[in-house]
Every structure is written in structure tokens, then in C-alpha cells.
């Protein structure tokens, strides 16, 4: 899984894909995840960071993380 490098993200949760012209919005945790992806953080590290910041069980977040990645794929925001 690799987040496309040229995707522009903002702190307010807006995402712009200059390759396709699509705009997106995300919630706070989604915005956090996108910045982690950009920094190439490992899955383990991301899970640790999120579980430290938010009130969530690891197992629940792992499931939601996979769903988020599915969403990114659906929206064509991942490198092939």
C-alpha cells in the first residue's frame, strides 16, 4: 500500500488529487492517517500512535484502518 506522493492534503481535512482533479474531505483521524502515510510510517507504528491518541481498541482500529485503505483505493489515491 502506497499513498500517492503528489496528493495535496491540508490540516483542515481537504485532499486534492492533482492527477485526477478530484477533491475529497476527511475527518480528523483520516487526516492523521494521511499524514502518517505521507511520512511512510509503518502499519505497526500507525496503530500504536492512533491507539495512544484515540479511545479505541486495537482490533477495532485495525479493521477500520483496512476499510480506510479500501476507501483510498476506491478513490484511486493509492499507487498501483
Amino acid at each position: 500500500m502506497k499513498f500517492k506522493k503528489n496528493i495535496a492534503t491540508s490540516d483542515t481535512g481537504y485532499i486534492f488529487n492533482p492527477g485526477s482533479g478530484d477533491s475529497f474531505s476527511s475527518n480528523q483521524i483520516g487526516t492523521d492517517l494521511l499524514s502518517f502515510f505521507k511520512e511512510d510510517k509503518s502499519r505497526g507504528e500507525i496503530i500504536r500512535l492512533i491507539c495512544a491518541k484515540y479511545e479505541v481498541e486495537k482490533i477495532q482500529f485495525e479493521k477500520d484502518l483496512d476499510d480506510f485503505i479500501t476507501q483510498l483505493r476506491d478513490h484511486n489515491l493509492l499507487e498501483n
Partner: peptide
């Protein structure tokens, strides 16, 4: 600009 579109949409 895309910023305007994002602002009204978001």
C-alpha cells in the same frame, strides 16, 4: 480555484 470548491463543499 479548487480551494473555493473545497470550502463550499466542506
Amino acid at each position: 480555484d479548487v480551494g473555493e470548491f473545497q470550502k463550499i463543499s466542506g
